[in-house]
């Protein structure tokens, strides 16, 4: 086991997958000579050459579309769209093209491509650089959406995404960029797509979360340790999400709090809450609640962004309320 930073784990995953399979190529803005806007592709150009590591113009739609066309003709491209917000510029290629090409071609073609994109929420980057847009992507049939909250998951999910035969959007948290964690040495140690992680087993209440919110949920659960036995589930794959793990947990605890950094309205938390309501109605002992950002753009200054994103105190309050207000 090596102890790596989040970005180093991503870098290692790319390096190992490129070494394993020469079809794996990397393209995007600043990924080559600059080594990535935040270092995730550092060293790849020197190691694998300019044919497989391509700096591109700022043409999000076209580089995603190029990755798609390349994926249909023998490559396994990993295209970087610098910020999750910029995915909106590439939405035709992501939503209308990549996500549907397998279906539309009746299985004639597959799109084994990965879009890596960074969510900078929590870094004081403002309304156009800090959005949590995972629900936009998860709403599209044919797209797989994963989000690792720690170095091991970031690495293992990215490797699984590269080996997947369909288009996968890999969201990375810039807030976690320097977080260190244990990472497996085995290049074939993957984190499977569609499998959540129970970070903390508990019996009183289930908290489902993902991405940048995970560590604030951990802090809330730790702070409550003497009062409430909290089960924390890191979803890791937003779509297709691990219904089995979540439903099993809620059936046991009878309580669900969903915590995410995206706004609540029409968010992924609503999907999870509705699914639990449909399948666990008889098991629920309290209303399902959501802790999420207010329905407003992401603010830039630190004090406002801290108020905007669910913090451990707010999360702990919601967990406590779930336990107190429900049926014992």
């Amino acid at each position: 086991m090596a102890r790596l930073k989040y970005w180093q784990a991503i870098n290692q995953a790319l390096r190992e997958e490129m070494a394993r399979d020469e079809a794996v190529c990397v393209l995007g803005e600043d990924v080559g000579a600059p080594g990535g806007p935040f270092g995730a592709t550092k060293g790849l150009l020197d190691e694998f050459g300019a044919a497989r590591v391509r700096d591109t113009p700022i043409s999000e739609a076209t580089i995603v579309g190029a990755a798609l066309g390349a994926s249909m003709t023998g490559l396994r491209p990993v295209v970087e769209v610098m910020f999750l917000d910029f995915m909106t510029v590439a939405m035709d290629q992501v939503v209308n093209q990549a996500a549907k090409v397998g279906y539309m071609s009746g299985g004639h073609y597959r799109a084994p491509m990965v879009v890596r994109t960074i969510c900078a929420s929590g870094r004081n980057t403002g309304p156009q650089h800090a959005q949590n847009l995972e629900a936009w992507l998860a709403h599209v049939p044919g797209l797989t959406v994963v989000w690792g909250s720690n170095p091991a998951d970031a690495r293992g999910l990215l490797k699984s995404a590269i080996r997947d035969d369909g288009p996968v959007v890999v969201i990375e948290s810039l807030a976690e960029w320097s977080r260190r964690g244990e990472v497996a040495d085995d290049p074939d140690a993957l984190v499977p797509i569609g499998v959540a992680a129970v970070r903390r087993p508990g019996t009183d209440v289930t908290v489902v979360t993902w991405g940048g919110a995970v560590h604030r949920v951990d802090a809330a659960a730790a702070a409550l340790a003497d009062e409430v036995d909290v089960e924390v589930i890191d979803l890791r794959t937003i779509s297709p999400w691990d219904r089995a793990t979540v439903l099993e947990s809620v059936r046991r605890t009878g309580r669900l709090v969903v915590v995410h950094d995206a706004v609540a309205a029409f968010g992924a938390g609503a999907e999870i809450a509705a699914t639990v309501a449909e399948h666990c109605f008889g098991d629920l002992r309290a209303p399902v609640t959501r802790v999420a950002a207010p329905f407003a753009p992401s603010p830039f200054p630190p004090q406002l962004e801290a108020a905007y994103l669910p913090q451990p105190g707010t999360i702990a309050d919601a967990i406590r309320a779930s336990v107190l207000q429900g049926v014992r």
Binding site: F38, G39, W177
Partner: peptide, 14 residues
């Protein structure tokens, strides 16, 4: 005069 490590960029936590 102190020699101080500056902040270089968004992700320079350490």
């Amino acid at each position: 005069i102190d020699v101080v490590v500056p902040r270089w960029g968004l992700t320079m936590d350490d």
